[in-house]
Simulated assay, not measured.
Amino acid sequence: MTDLFPPTLPVLTMMGRTADGRGWLARLPALVEQLRERWQLRLAAPFHGGSCSWAAPAELPDGTRAVLKLTWPHPEARTEGAALRLWDGRGAVRVLAQDAAAFALLLERVEPGVELGRARHLPAEERLLAAADVLRELWAADPAAATASGMGRVADTAARWAEVAERQAARSWPPALDAGLFRLAARLLRELPRSARREVVVHGDFNPGNLLSARRSPWLAIDAKPMTGDPAFDPWPLLEQVDDPFAHSDPHRVLRHRTALLAEALGEDADRIRAWSVARHVEYVLWSVDEDENLENSITLLRQARILADLAGL
Score class of each variant (00 low, 15 high):
Ala179Trp: 01
Leu314Ser: 10
Leu266His: 04
Pro75Ser: 11
Arg118Gln: 14
Gln241Thr: 11
Glu59Pro: 07
Arg167Thr: 12
Pro231Ser: 11
Val67Ser: 09
Pro226Asp: 05
Ala165Arg: 03
Asn210Gly: 07
Ala77Ser: 13
Arg171Thr: 09
Ala97His: 08
Ser217His: 10
Phe103Ala: 14
Ile273Gln: 04
Ala224Ser: 14
Ala155Pro: 03
Ser217Leu: 06
Arg85Cys: 13
Leu105Tyr: 01
Asp223Tyr: 00
Glu268His: 09
Leu96Gln: 09
Gly313Lys: 09
Ala104Phe: 03
Glu291Asp: 14
Phe47Ile: 11
Thr79Asp: 09
Val154Ile: 15
Val285Cys: 14
Thr259Ala: 07
Asp290Met: 12
Asp3Leu: 02
Val11Ile: 10
Thr79Trp: 06
Ala56Pro: 05
Glu126Asp: 15
Ala185Asp: 01
Asp3Arg: 07
Val134Pro: 00
Ala102Pro: 00
Leu192Tyr: 02
Ala97Asp: 12
Arg127Phe: 09
Phe5Tyr: 05
Thr64Cys: 13
Arg190Asn: 08
Pro10Ala: 10
Ala270Thr: 09
Thr228Pro: 03
Leu135Pro: 00
Val67Asp: 02
Ala44Ile: 02
Arg127Cys: 08
Asp230Met: 05
Leu308Met: 11
Ala119Gln: 12
Ala140Ser: 15
Ser249Phe: 07
Ala159Gln: 10
Leu60Asp: 03
Leu12Thr: 01
Leu128Val: 07
Asn207Pro: 00
Pro245Ser: 12
Pro218Asn: 10
Gln168Arg: 15
Glu293Phe: 12
Arg160Tyr: 08
Trp287Asn: 05
Ala104Cys: 10
Asn207Met: 05
Ser149Gln: 13
Glu33Leu: 12
Glu268Leu: 15
Asp62His: 11
Arg215Asn: 09
Met227Cys: 11
Glu108Asn: 08
Asp133Cys: 13
Glu37Ala: 15
Phe233Pro: 01
Glu80Ile: 02
Leu192Gly: 03
Arg197Trp: 06
Thr157Leu: 15
Ala82Lys: 00
Trp87Leu: 14
Leu31Gly: 06
Leu302Ser: 08
Pro235Arg: 05
Arg167Gly: 08
Pro218Tyr: 03
Leu12Tyr: 02
Ala159Asn: 06
Ala66Gln: 01
Leu105Ser: 03
Ala265Lys: 02
Glu126Met: 11
Val93Glu: 02
Ala275Phe: 00
Gln34Tyr: 08
Ala102Lys: 04
Gln34Asn: 12
Gln241Tyr: 05
Ala232Ile: 02
Asp292Asn: 11
Thr13Gln: 13
Met151Gly: 02
Val201Met: 02
Leu255His: 04
Phe246Gly: 07
Arg258Pro: 01
Gly113Asn: 09
Arg258Trp: 13
Pro235Lys: 08
Val114Ile: 13
Gln241Arg: 15
Ser277Thr: 10
Gly117Phe: 04
Glu199Tyr: 03
Leu116Asp: 03
Arg194Trp: 01
Arg42Tyr: 04
Pro75Asp: 11
Gly267Tyr: 07
Trp276Asn: 03
